[in-house]
Design a protein around this nucleic acid. Structure first.
Lengths: 353, 353
DNA sequence: TTGATCTGCAAAAACGATTTAGCATCTGAT
DNA sequence: ATCAGATGCTAAATCGTTTTTGCAGATCAA
């Protein structure tokens, strides 16, 4: 009291200027002390103490933007991975690695291999509230994952002022990486080649663009080849336990099936458990096909056959597209379809190894 | 040619200034156009075109630090998750979520809920080369994961100029979150309570601080209670397939065991497969205990018993410590031990559900 | 012809930090 | 008493942006 102005904002963030005022020194002296340069800069020990006391007293946190701006040079390209909180996150890792690898491999000349990756998360449906998204002052480019229908609608009516790549969503005006559309139909074909006739598909709700396409493709192709519709098993969420419960209650209701398509490996894992508990053998009683979105699906018991795109391929392609746009081919907003990988394992009766 | 100076640096990054020079206008005009404010700012259409052409021609990328600095205000607290490339990454997700949740929950008053999370990755053993690590101009605080012994040595002799929390490493001068030390001994006890007498432990190499503690604890307690040493099965890496191969070659060598401790769930999954292929039933022939570091261990076949700390608890505690230090309790560098959670499932013969 | 209004842009201030150059004052040697 | 060097700090420049203010010249009305 006394020196401090009475009408100060309640909690303005402390800056070097504030510390300088509090300690009665210049901001240059403050900076020298806070960066431990006080020896070379010949700041007196008592002054050092005064400044340190003021800094901790004010709860000083340096402004990183200012530091980076001033210390100039490199590493100022900022890439963001934007995903919803509720999303199945494992995918995110692949993108981090892919981005880092792509940059490390020198695929983007501008940054000289130096850049940062940020993770931004938003509550599903509230992408539009993400700070920096519209102003473009948080990152130079972004990969968008796991958006909901509302988010997609928002994107559709906004133009983001930096390069963006969408994953598994198609929205006019944006570059995108999507899985091949025939995922579902191929799953049906695999089961039918394995002589299965009474098919079912298990999926979460609500259906995203991608999972809807999988389900539709499967139903269509199944009906086409078999002349009868497949069962549809709706799981409350995409978790293993929800898959387990959905499968269990389906089996209790009685319909007999001999082929199952799970639109995610989590659901497949839950279904495995329900099937086994019902005394059904995989694949002899029921063959199962998943999508390969778990790394460990080869270690399922039995190992899971899958048809889908690898997360790694998806991530690498997205990174490539992002850097391509960053690199200046400004107008190009390509849509890349990642080809399917079909991995036949024991769960569909194809290999016993 | 003609206007451009001949002795320009090969590839200085384009700035608004450069664009302004190239287009023959002021930097204010450039900024207005690049931010699509040219209508309100009354920039002539031809000028707009000139500026846009210059910008794309020079491959302009805005400097995010400068933008954020200027647009001032909030969201300038930057938190980093620093991990090695080679690490088992799934852990990282928990930290992202935990950090975001802790901040969202208002546990850190300084940032008013606004902040960024960056992911920094380094090649194992080369933490010291990470840009911004020593200068402190990339983030305000960091959580360090998956460091190697060399990295730890580096940390030991350096003082980082911002709050840091180490995960599962103890280094003087740093706050840390570690798992309870009795992880390994508890695993031994569980197996012995299940009447197992011929124990083995499977682990990767090289051993980290944490896994070494697990192995040692297991060996000690096992020898103590049984009067005979447990077998040690060394896997080349921490992957499922490495675990599978290590287990397989162990079983081929002939030693019979009835209890197995896997220091990671990935190894447990690989071991499951090898055991089953050898016709050994889990748990009747061999009981297995893991550590619960896979979300899906309840869906192993049979569900995996585990004793360890949850990633979520680890991540939440680390976030808490980080924000605590950020909040100003400057000198405190606490070490927090996260208590064990013991989950008994069928793999140790405890529950059949 | 003369203000008044509009157009189109330039100049300068500001964001928060670091570093360089330089200015006093003090100390010690001659 | 004087000068050289050390000591301890301040002032100013700078990083790359955005926004505000203002100034010329053109257009229009009277």
């Amino acid at each position: 009291m006394g020196k401090t102005k009475p009408t100060k904002k309640p909690r303005a963030r402390a800056t070097v200027r504030g510390i300088a005022a509090a300690a009665g020194v210049s901001i240059g002296a403050v900076s020298s002390v806070l960066n431990n340069r006080h020896v070379e800069r010949r700041i007196a020990p008592e002054t050092v103490e005064k400044i340190r006391a003021a800094a901790t007293g004010l709860g000083y946190l340096p402004n990183i933007s200012a530091k980076r701006l001033r210390s100039g040079g490199k590493n100022n390209v900022v890439l963001a991975l934007v995903t919803s909180f509720e999303a199945p996150i494992p995918l995110v890792n692949h993108f981090i690695i892919a981005l880092r690898s792509a940059m490390a491999a020198g695929k983007f000349p501008h940054a000289e291999g130096a850049f940062s990756v940020m993770i931004e998360m938003f509550p599903a449906g509230r992408l539009h509230e993400l700070p920096g998204l519209l102003s473009g002052d948080h990152f130079n480019a972004a990969i968008l994952l796991n958006t909901t229908a509302e988010d997609d609608a928002f994107l559709n009516r906004s133009a983001l002022p930096y390069p963006v790549v969408l994953v598994n969503r198609l929205i006019a005006g944006y570059a995108a990486v999507v899985e091949a559309p025939e995922t579902g139909s191929r799953a049906a074909e695999i089961l039918i080649r394995a002589k299965r006739r009474r098919l079912a598909v298990i999926h979460g709700s609500p259906l995203t663009q991608t999972t809807r396409a999988r389900v539709n493709g499967f139903m269509h192709r199944g009906a086409e080849l078999l002349g009868q519709p497949a069962h549809e098993i709706k799981s409350a969420t995409l978790s293993e336990s929800a898959g387990y419960e959905a499968m269990q209650s389906f089996l209790k209701r009685g319909p007999e099936i001999d082929g199952l398509y799970a639109v995610s490996d989590a659901l497949a894992l839950g279904a495995y458990r329900a099937l086994k508990e019902h005394g059904l053998k995989i694949p002899s009683d029921v063959a199962v096909v998943g999508v390969g979105d778990y790394e460990i699906s080869p270690f399922f018991d039995p190992p899971l056959t899958s048809v889908g795109v690898s997360h790694q391929a998806l991530a690498e392609e997205a990174s490539r597209l992002l850097l391509l746009q960053l690199g200046g081919v400004g107008a190009a907003r390509p849509t890349v379809t990642v080809p399917l990988a079909e991995t036949l394992r024991a769960s569909s009766g194809h290999r016993l190894g």
